[in-house]
Design a protein around this nucleic acid. Structure first.
Lengths: 143, 143
DNA sequence: CTAATTTAGGATAAAAGAGTCCGATTATCA
DNA sequence: TGATAATCGGACTCTTTTATCCTAAATTAG
């Protein structure tokens, strides 16, 4: 969302993002890295390097992000954890849970990063406004 | 569900249940213990001891079980994990997730153990029928 | 070419969760 | 009253997940 709101042609370094959002550097780094590997973000090393969107924010959905971070196993897995659960041999929640799961799936596919970023514009701005505090984005040794 | 299907006035020892269901003894013990502490089950030590339903199976809902095992934090927690998320300061998914969460909550409250036990009668019987194998309910030292 | 900056990715550490074990306690039966 | 059959609950272990750290590689400015 932060990158979507920036909409600049330059790359955004992890450090800038984590200072604005006040989250740990290495924590964000791993997440950005994973999203970049999936093509949702692009990255560039070295000076003037950083991260940017790899696809238009209207095209990135919550489902893409869930897929990149947690995988899609939840769309198949029996909610009671029974290995033998199937249409032929359904558990007590097979159909009931399929309905809920399908709704959530549709919601994830529907919701874009562009939409979410728009809705959180104010709070993300608010966070960015506090960036001139002494939070350097690194949790430990102030390098 | 197993206890609901038994519907006997005697108590069911953990060992019988775990042999029928082919699950580890100590694993089941901990779960039964927790449900008993919440009053959903009753327990009795000593000879002729074991576990039984503490309430009619029509009165025990999935929500009661989720509450006893995992707690109800999920009904409050922001799906994005933001501590400051609230109606006044909603995250990008605040309302969307509230809808899904409410649906699931209603489903949990609606679904009773009696209903689930009825639906799984066949597979639970099937499991119980295989109990004369060499599975003694304990994972380790065959006491 | 060198120094500075920035991400990449593997290694490690910390935390959480799940599962197991065991001694203590309680109850029943003979 | 002693032997036996059970649960109780804390301690322990194992696995998984989450978070952090560190070195290498890439890129650019000077």
């Amino acid at each position: 969302m932060y990158l979507a709101l920036k909409r600049s042609d330059r790359m955004t370094p992890i450090k800038e993002l984590t200072q604005s959002l006040r989250i740990p550097f290495h924590f964000a780094a791993k997440i950005l890295q994973r999203l970049a590997r999936k093509g949702l973000l692009v990255s560039l090393k070295g000076r003037a390097g950083g991260f940017g969107l790899g696809v238009a924010p209207t095209e990135i959905t919550l489902f893409h992000i869930v897929e990149a971070i947690d995988g899609v196993e939840f769309t198949r897995r029996c909610v009671l954890g029974l290995p033998a659960c199937s249409v032929e041999n359904p558990c007590a929640l097979h159909e009931t849970w399929r309905e809920e799961r399908d709704r959530i799936y549709k919601m994830l596919v529907r919701k874009s990063v562009a939409e979410m970023a728009r809705e959180m514009k104010n709070s993300l701005h608010g966070l960015a406004a506090t960036k001139d505090k002494d939070f350097d984005g690194y949790q430990t040794n102030h390098s």
